[in-house]
């Protein structure tokens, strides 16, 4: 059944996320009621699945299968570029913020079959002193032995990085 999430948990999450998003150039949907409902849903998913899966997609319950849809998802930035909003309408572009009407957008996440086939990319030979890691959420790159504990730009965890070079 659906776990209980208290209003003050949602309010605290909203304040924290809004501050963090604005500080790195992202915007939450200005429709606060709608936004807080989505945040409540992410907290529900954290409690029932153990990770904050996208509330607008069907989670599998297996974290390794759903890494790409842990909010913020891997598809947020391309969707912001193309449609001015993420799939859920949680993150929006500056244009939407100024009052452009928001509506639901097509699903960018590949089907399970497609996801399974692109997972294995060939590792390029490298003469670099360090490997380069790329944050799959925001594109941040860094050259070091391992990816950072969390992305310094968008704050997602280490497991969202891929080896880039």
């Amino acid at each position: 059944m659906i776990p209980n999430v208290k209003d003050d948990e949602v309010d605290a999450f909203y304040e924290k996320l809004k501050k963090q998003a604005e500080s790195v150039g992202y915007h939450l949907n200005p429709d606060v009621k709608f936004t807080k409902e989505l945040l409540r849903s992410i907290l529900i998913n954290e409690k029932r699945y153990g990770y904050g899966a996208c509330p607008c997609r069907l989670a599998s319950g297996e974290k390794t299968e759903d890494r790409d849809i842990i909010c913020p998802c891997d598809y947020r930035d391309p969707d912001l570029d193309e449609y001015g909003t993420c799939y859920c309408g949680l993150y929006v572009s500056g244009e939407i913020l100024k009052g452009k009407k928001l509506t639901s957008i097509p699903e960018r996440r590949p089907s399970p079959e497609e996801r399974a086939s692109v997972e294995k990319s060939v590792e390029a030979p490298s003469v670099l002193k360090f490997p380069v890691w790329r944050c799959k959420v925001c594109g941040y790159l860094c050259a070091r032995d391992k990816p950072p504990e969390s992305c310094p730009i968008c704050k997602v965890s280490k497991e969202r990085f891929e080896r880039f070079i």
Binding site: F34, E37, L38, S41, I44, P55, C56, C88, G89
Partner: peptide
């Protein structure tokens, strides 16, 4: 629908 989805609501 999903119980958590904003567009479903």
């Amino acid at each position: 629908a999903l119980s958590t989805c904003g567009w479903c609501k």
